[in-house]
């Protein structure tokens, strides 16, 4: 690979699978539960987190030598808060409906553990370029889980994907032999997001038994 040497490529691919921030480190669960009822919201959330994390990682990495260690959390918060406000305003300007669906959860990106975790664990100790890659990788790992969960929840819960009708109309007939699709209302409730997430973790860990904790 021209642009990425092996070590850099690992920064992106690692958090995607074996060190996934959501399914392995179990971070950022709240937003994964809250906004995944629609696929569109999941995708936008994934992009928003990616923007905040990638840019934030670069900013922190650039400042890593001048941030006094005593107040580094405050500095990190200021950086992430500023970025989240920008993202929020961009969403409000160009995708107002979506920003209403996401409501408070865009603001809550600030408290997303993945972001603070990467700032602390990676950006403070690595060069801007590597931090950028790390941010992209982690946000992608977070985003892919969000999108998988959102895909199943919207498909089975509303019978639509990105708002387009995919599955048929609900059944009218009654009786034990009635066939046809009926939306699964449980999918739209938060507990089902947790269960879908749990199933993803289950599948991942049975494929890669190294991930199972003792």
């Amino acid at each position: 690979m021209g642009l990425l040497n092996k070590k850099d490529a690992k920064l992106i691919t690692d958090p995607f699978l074996d060190n996934n921030p959501v399914t392995v480190q179990v971070l950022g669960i709240c937003s994964a539960l809250a906004i995944t009822a629609e696929l569109k919201a999941s995708i936008v959330m994934a992009i928003a987190v990616m923007a905040v994390l990638a840019i934030g990682n670069v900013v922190i990495s650039l400042m890593r030598n001048i941030i006094p260690s005593k107040i580094r959390i405050i500095v990190q918060l200021v950086v992430v808060a500023a970025l989240v406000i920008i993202v929020d305003l961009v969403l409000k300007a160009y995708a107002y409906e979506l920003s209403k669906t996401l409501s408070v959860f865009v603001g809550l990106i600030i408290t997303n553990c993945i972001i603070m975790g990467r700032f602390e664990a990676f950006a403070l100790a690595n060069s801007p370029y590597q931090s950028f890659l790390d941010g992209i990788g982690n946000a992608a790992g977070y985003g892919i889980i969000l999108i998988i969960v959102g895909f199943f929840r919207e498909l089975l819960g509303s019978g639509t994907l990105l708002g387009y009708k995919v599955l048929g109309d609900p059944i009218e007939k009654t009786g034990v032999y009635a066939f046809g699709y009926e939306n699964n209302g449980f999918m739209l409730l938060a507990p089902m997001a947790l269960i879908v997430l749990g199933i993803i973790i289950w599948v991942q860990r049975s494929r890669n038994t190294n991930l199972i904790e003792e």
């Binding site: 059944i171 009654t174 009786g175 034990v176 032999y177 009635a178 066939f179 009926e182 699964n184 269960i195 749990g198 289950w202």
Partner: peptide, 23 residues
């Protein structure tokens, strides 16, 4: 209920046995 469609029951049984018990 008497008139629950069979496919709904099947979906629920799979869910119940896997998530409610086997996990």
């Amino acid at each position: 209920p008497v008139d629950i469609p069979l496919w709904m029951l099947s979906v629920a049984v799979v869910f119940g046995v896997v998530i409610g018990k086997e996990v």
